[in-house]
Design a protein around this nucleic acid. Structure first.
Lengths: 233, 233
DNA sequence: TAAGATAATATGCATGCACATATTAAGGTG
DNA sequence: CACCTTAATATGTGCATGCATATTATCTTA
């Protein structure tokens, strides 16, 4: 074969991809092992390894030690969403950003939420509600809980100057988090804040971030009507 | 330092991660170059490279040749969504799957859609509407356009036996696609199909897949009430 | 001084080798 | 024949080295 694509790991990935797409190797079928491919392409095994690892990362092949590499049965469609700080998201659209702090209270967490946000029952949490604007029109409504034990200076920050969203990103690094998207119907209060008709279907996102075992913040963000979350595959 | 974490690329990644999280290296700041880190950790440069490449993949550092590596200003939150074939998604929930083909027509694409789905104006497209069930309750409603020029045998497939979703995954490999999520309000027709009250806010997904420049299929999937799309960060 | 050529440098990647590790296959034993 | 041990094997990863490539800094030259 000896194509010009050989010798670079991306080139080899393209060759392998083509064989999979052309059904030269069918789903579920085992493909030649690294050493054999390396010999065929006249490159080092590490180069084949890099290409196969990339295909495995995108879910197209399944690799197991000793068992070899096989083509995935139904290649899952993996999409990577990039969730930016809202200010950056708005500014990237070429619109001007502003936010308004609607409310700030400190009180213990309602018992119902202790499952999802495990903090000491009597420890005050910081509750913020914020409205984000793009070109002076409502863009998203945010309800947030911050655990002051995890975000140490949070109590003394003026969140009307910097949004909690942005402050936390820069000051409370998290190890992991979970994320959910779902639709909500605008009630009277929401429709007023987001300047839309009651009953409008809105896009909502909920996120909890953690520093190890300690929850840092929980946020529910509800976007104004017309919001679409997009990505490539 | 010479921790036990040294000598494996994941260990080195953890050390680097800790330095970033502890603000030992602040956002925007340039970090030592690969050779220096390799010397510090007593490992090969390739090992440091692997760790840094991984951090760059997850968006925590920005790398440029000659310019070096610096900590990202606001680490974007990247979430990877895995979108399975609906049958597998339902079965993974431990529920039984069934689908029902509600409609099948062949007609040219409405002119309004030629921008998003560029096919010959007079070429017949295959239009399918499908209802997906989990445990005999409606799970998602699907409206799909298939370009028969890209999915060659599509016209002769009995989509009441195998869902278009699943057939395409196995028979029409795509090179790329785009994906959008948004909310819709259930109208009379939708609320009937999905067995919910009119006006309910529903989660919708739209996806177009391509084989190079040729569009393969466009699908709009509307999920029954209560659906949440979840992922980790 | 400004523009262009040139050198320096950090990352990107390929190679050949060695060893680690998970998993399967084969062999042996009661 | 079931069970355990042992060997074989494919992938995973580390190392040292060399060269490629993008980008920045520096040095010329008009």
């Amino acid at each position: 074969m000896a194509l010009s694509e050989t010798n670079s790991w991306t080139g080899i990935r393209e060759i392998l991809l083509r064989r999979i797409n052309d059904r030269e190797w069918s789903p579920g079928e085992q493909i030649p092992h690294e050493a054999a491919l390396a010999e065929e392409f006249g490159c080092a095994r590490a180069t084949v390894n890099r290409a196969l690892r990339d295909l495995a990362d995108s879910g197209l092949v399944i690799r197991k030690r000793r068992a070899g590499t096989r083509v995935a049965q139904s290649p899952p469609q993996r999409a990577t969403l990039t969730i930016q700080v809202i200010r950056e998201e708005v500014e990237a659209l070429g619109r001007s950003y502003r936010h308004s702090l609607l409310g700030r209270t400190e009180k213990p967490l309602p018992p119902a939420l202790h499952g999802a946000f495990p903090v000491a029952p009597d420890a005050d949490q910081l509750f913020l509600t914020t409205l984000h604007f793009a070109d002076e029109r409502p863009y998203a409504y945010e309800e947030r809980t911050i655990n002051p034990d995890a975000a140490l200076d949070a109590r003394s920050v003026d969140f009307s100057k910097i949004s909690a969203n942005e402050w936390l990103v820069h000051n409370a690094p998290y190890s992991h988090g979970d994320l959910a998207f779902f639709p909500v119907s605008a009630d009277e209060r929401l429709s007023q804040k987001l300047d839309t008709a009651p009953g409008t279907a809105l896009f909502a996102m909920e996120r909890t971030t953690w520093a190890g075992e300690t929850p840092i913040t929980h946020v529910r963000m509800i976007f104004a009507a017309g919001y679409r979350m997009r990505t490539g595959i």
